[in-house]
Design a protein around this nucleic acid. Sequence first.
DNA 1: GTCATTTGACAGGCGACACTTGACAGACTA
DNA 2: TAGTCTGTCAAGTGTCGCCTGTCAAATGAC
Lengths: 95, 95
Amino acid sequence: MAMQNPPHPGGIVKRQCLEPLGLSVTAAAGHLGVSRQSLSELINERAGVSVDMAIRLTKAFGSSPETWLGLQMAYDLWQARRRIDDIKVERIEAA
Amino acid sequence: MAMQNPPHPGGIVKRQCLEPLGLSVTAAAGHLGVSRQSLSELINERAGVSVDMAIRLTKAFGSSPETWLGLQMAYDLWQARRRIDDIKVERIEAA
DNA sequence: GTCATTTGACAGGCGACACTTGACAGACTA
DNA sequence: TAGTCTGTCAAGTGTCGCCTGTCAAATGAC
């Protein structure tokens, strides 16, 4: 059962992490040890969750790096399905 | 139960896909629609599995993009754990 | 109304990485 | 010997995460 339309992890960070704690982007970025721009881009879905960022998010807000990266993977894969038919590869069967 | 030492996906492609079918790197690369160098780098663990490559591998050898990317994620995360203590982030608790 | 904070956005630049074509040397084989 | 396969190097492209600096707009406090 694949998700219908996986959300971008940035929105989750915003709604599930920053807003409940009343954290500003500036404050959270400082806490995470990244630039304000970097976190802003993630939150506004203009950047993805990197391995580094996944670790920072886990240390600050909990969950696990696997979960954060899994969200990103699901999102990326969903986007890729738009152009999946452009990739022409035939199945290789055992001779 | 995390894996002790996740293998690089490249080795899996080599041992589980190419060798059982007697496929050369050159032949497999042509089939996957990528350059010989590109597949060679993956197999020799000098490149990772991209979203694009995961789709190609799935179309050619089966499994799923999630599985291929999951292998890559596990590997990347394992590598990152070496420097995980260099990332200084404190837990943010609810006020 | 004014000032400080916050925010999204843009420019310029850096390093990493996946991928390409072209080329070369070593190894293996018909 | 000739052809194939392979790993690898060079050089170039495009994408992307991240940085600093800057700017204008919005928000809130005084």
